[in-house]
């Protein structure tokens, strides 16, 4: 099968570019730990509120871990608990969230915090809040008539 010389040049360039992209992504994900949220832990969606850590939603200081705080969110149609939270500037926080009913989204607008909350699964994301300001949390996965009214708020404040 004949292939024009220029087409070969183009395909080598194109495939090479794709390989570079994949290498950058792979190093960032597997070596630097920037994986998309893939927690794999499960929970009975009917009993979320009686189980730790979801029995106490909100921000909690922790010791002896790679992060300073744990921030627990429980989502349900059509709200988040807690409804707003203050985080000290520069804190490293593990966000732990789940849903009590249908699928919800958990997006902190303007950040990389963006994960699906699915009934029965726990979603986690670790990050350092290194910019002050007010950040809107919203549901970005369709969950019913009040989907667009489902919000919460994070304020990153100088301590």
């Amino acid at each position: 099968m004949h292939m024009h010389k220029f087409e070969k040049v183009w395909l080598i360039f194109g495939v090479g570019t794709l390989l570079v992209f994949l290498t950058v992504l792979g190093v960032s994900a597997f070596y630097l730990g920037n994986q998309p949220p893939s927690c794999l832990a499960t929970i009975d969606p009917e009993k979320v509120e009686t189980q730790a850590p979801f029995n106490e939603p909100g921000l909690k200081k922790v010791e002896g871990k790679a992060w300073d705080y744990e921030l627990v969110f429980v989502a349900q149609a059509f709200n988040y608990n807690p409804g707003d939270v203050e985080i000290p500037f520069g804190a490293t926080v593990k966000i732990i969230a789940t849903t009590k009913d249908v699928i919800h989204g958990f997006e902190v607008a303007g950040t990389n915090i963006n994960m699906m909350l699915e009934p029965g699964y726990i979603s986690e994301h670790i990050t350092t809040f290194d910019k002050t300001g007010e950040y809107l949390i919203l549901c970005n996965e369709y969950c019913g008539a009040g989907h667009h009214l489902m919000t919460s708020k994070i304020e990153v404040v100088e301590s």
């Binding site: 183009w10 360039f13 194109g14 570019t17 992209f21 950058v24 303007g110 950040t111 990389n112 915090i113 990050t127 350092t128 809040f129 290194d130 910019k131």
Partner: peptide, 24 residues
């Protein structure tokens, strides 16, 4: 033409990648 196309792909991708790096 295809190289122009290729550079457009690269510029877009790198742009969003830097956005990813810049955000927490």
């Amino acid at each position: 033409s295809v190289f122009l196309l290729g550079f457009f792909l690269i510029v877009s991708w790198v742009g969003v990648f830097f956005l990813f790096l810049d955000r927490f």
